[in-house]
Design a protein around this nucleic acid. Structure first.
Lengths: 232, 232
DNA sequence: CGACCATTTGATATGGATCAAGCGATGTGG
DNA sequence: CCACATCGCTTGATCCATATCAAATGGTCG
């Protein structure tokens, strides 16, 4: 839900006016959905742990991260939380074909996010084949991401953690040093493991000198070959 | 690979000519991708266990099942097989946005399948917004299916089997009696369990009178409420 | 009828969960 | 500026769900 926040802690929303609106509209034509969002989106800020939208709410907006990180997740009756995805600067999320969101979304840390109305894009897609294809493209990308995630859940704990580290290294692209914005609990809920197992596995990889852990949120890949082997 | 089969057992392909080709072209306009495939598709027959396409092969065709059942799967280096989906009469599969297939596809039993060239549909989508939207729609449907599957893999063995039975009951819609075309191994590889665990869980559900097992491939849902509870 | 394959059932092993405690960094109030 | 509370993470001990290994049963087809 975009326009009101139920809990004080969720009051992460600052009025758009506080942020310099993206007024400059370059003569450039958008070549993909991301560029298109740069042109059309309104920036909003969210505090750490702020809810961006909730599962089941109507999916009226599409989001693109300018800065910060986001998690999407689903809660189960038994209290378990499954994280569906992490999103980072440049990533788009929240676009659904159906009427409402299948997952909830929260800011992992302080975020600035471009927001545009879905109806605007969908209406445009009716007239513009390029836009239509971009919407398809985005959904196909999500499909392939979820397929990978599904396959991840069939692997051993060590394999899952290794895949996770490689994915982060690739997406956050900062050489061998990976800065993790999310907690061990977030990682555990993404990999469907417990925090204890995640922690033990990281310790174990560090013992084998496959990685180094200068701090708990900073991970150095010291032996990518070994990690790739676990990836398979 | 569509035009040649490497193994004798895979020689499931009969020339189209042996099957009455869908010559009748009704004046009706297609309202969705399935109807469109009925109009455009050429029927082909596959024997039990015949390969329809292999992972990594170029995704030149799209498929719609007339009769029979299909599994898609991925093999891992360690010999594990993960089944990605089961498809039944009326279902479309094999449509990719990218150049090649992410999974392999095999006939579970004797199948008749309509086949059309992807390029034909994609070219049409460039001109026809309805077709474009149908392609997006299909991919979005696959996305939501895979998301459900991913969440399934985070549940207990009993929950997975219960969800599986409910899914089959819904999709094959024959009242309380579910006729399963696939083996226990197929089910196990879909749910990421062993055949032993699948078998034991079914036996256990039968003991609790939640289901009945008149034969190993025929399952009667005797207490859907109990299954729904496990579904969550 | 007999061979073969799919399925079930039984005995044991194990990877990861759970329960519990300790540790280190960060922040807060005195 | 330090004492202490808090929170996130790690480490240790034990348990349990499901895998693994092994054998029996049943169904199908020549």
């Amino acid at each position: 839900m975009l326009m009101q926040m139920p809990l004080p802690i969720s009051l992460g929303l600052r009025p758009v006016s506080q942020i310099s609106r993206n007024t400059r509209r370059p003569a450039t034509v958008a070549h993909d959905l991301k560029e298109q969002m740069d042109l059309m989106g309104a920036p909003m800020a969210f505090f750490r742990n702020a809810e961006i939208y909730g599962e089941g709410e109507s999916a009226d907006y599409i989001y693109k991260i300018v800065s910060g990180s986001v998690r999407t997740y689903k809660m189960f009756d038994d209290g378990r939380r499954q994280i569906g995805a992490f999103y980072f600067p440049g990533d788009i999320f929240g676009l659904e074909l159906g009427d409402d969101h299948q997952f909830s979304a929260e800011a992992i840390d302080k975020c600035v996010i471009l927001v545009i109305k879905r109806s605007a894009l969908v209406a445009l897609a009716d007239r513009d084949g390029d836009t239509a294809r971009r919407l398809w493209s985005f959904t196909a990308g999500e499909l392939s991401r979820v397929q990978k995630h599904m396959l991840l859940l069939t692997k051993s704990a060590e394999d899952r953690v290794a895949c996770f580290l490689l994915e982060m290294a690739e997406r956050r692209a900062s050489g061998e040093v990976v800065e993790l914005p999310m907690s061990r609990q977030d990682i555990a809920d993404y990999l469907d493991l417990t925090i204890e197992t995640v922690s033990r596995t990281l310790t174990h990889l560090a013992t084998k000198a496959t990685i180094a852990l200068p701090t708990s949120r900073r991970i150095v890949l010291r032996n990518r070959t070994a990690l790739d082997r676990l990836d398979a």
